[in-house]
Design a protein around this nucleic acid. Structure first.
Lengths: 200, 200
DNA sequence: TTGCCTACCTAACGAACGTTAGGTAGGGTG
DNA sequence: CACCCTACCTAACGTTCGTTAGGTAGGCAA
């Protein structure tokens, strides 16, 4: 019982376990490429039983995408609180580190989100789009303020540099290995490249 | 007959037409999300007839991924020839512009490649990986030489900045609209951000 | 004219898919 | 002890999937 309690904590069971494994599967094989029977196998139940927890496969994806954004928003909150009156470049680095934390250190939801959203069924995307927009708006607003304060090159398009930065960070899901690289250093590198460029 | 010849040129038929539409479908819905019947419908034939041109769906994907790399390589060749003795930043911009050209101006193959490769079946990936590596190696080598010549910040990891740059460019498939934006200006913007950064 | 090759078609196969209906073991509550 | 609710199970439904076998119209060659 002590062990069963420990197990419940170490590897969760039930609904959260399903979401975790589903997000990992969707990330690896894509949404349509992962089947519910495959998912049921990895969580140790039968495909039909998944419907006790979720109304449909689309529903499952919707909640995963939603959680992905929740994780990003929470990370953004933390970065905001921690770097509210830091220097501009330090503010950016804090938020870059936070976004990377969402991608790599808080479950597979954010990674699954950024990788599966584009090909998700339109009915699912419709539900999630406003949440995405809200998160993106916070980034845009932060960068806009930095530019208004003269900390950012006034000639750049804030939306473009945000999308370029997002592309770079999100793509790292495909190649960055947390076992071999350090996220603090990576955040510093990507921020340095973003802020100062790589030209000598 | 004059018209049929014109049609053959304007909207191609047969094998190339299938590949074109398949790449576009895989790009939009993902590889597993797009069905052969859907593909057959858009090219105006029956699903079984596709097998006159391709041995399997995996085979179709393999050729699309291969073409995606061919397009990139050709673009790289052109950029190399056109900017062989240009200033470092102009060399980089030429290659950025070339990669964007591969993504947006030479059919859906490169875009389909960068978006579907990650979730492609392992047997398909195995075939394509060496080709990808060869293309990536050319970029790495170019950046390495720039760094050796003192044109690039000696402290940065060439492989990391390449992956960051690739992530930014490839992700633009998701948001950049060639009808509303100019690729020359976009290439200049992304190169400027890459080379000089956005800090004021 | 005969014959062949190209480029399709029709029709179906078995497997896998998401999904559902109805059943059941077991712990918690009255 | 009786009851019920949670968390599954079994078993199947109808659909769609990739794929295949066999047929065929039309153009080109001999």
């Amino acid at each position: 019982m002590a062990q069963s309690v420990a197990n419940t904590v170490l590897v969760e069971s039930g609904r959260d376990r399903i979401l975790d494994e589903a997000a990992a599967l969707f990330l690896r094989h894509g949404y349509e490429g992962a089947s519910l029977r495959q998912l049921a196998d990895t969580v140790g139940m039968k495909a039909g039983s998944l419907y006790y927890h979720f109304a449909s496969k689309d529903d499952l994806l919707t909640e995963i995408l939603r959680r992905g954004i929740d994780v990003m928003q929470t990370a953004f909150d933390d970065a905001e609180a921690a770097s509210a009156d830091a220097r501009p470049v330090a503010r950016v680095e804090a938020h870059v580190r936070a976004h990377l934390s969402a991608l790599f250190e808080n479950g597979p939801y954010t990674a699954a989100h950024v990788m599966t959203f584009r090909t998700a069924p339109e009915t699912v995307r419709e539900v999630v789009v406003p949440l995405r927009d809200a998160y993106e708006a916070r980034w845009t607003e932060m960068l806009r303020l930095l530019q208004a304060d003269g900390a950012l090159d006034p000639t750049v398009d804030v939306n473009v540099i945000r999308l370029v930065l997002f592309g770079a960070m999100n793509a790292s899901v495909e190649w960055f290995d947390t076992d071999r690289g350090n996220l603090d250093r990576f955040a510093a590198a990507i921020t340095g490249q973003f802020w100062n460029g790589v030209g000598a």
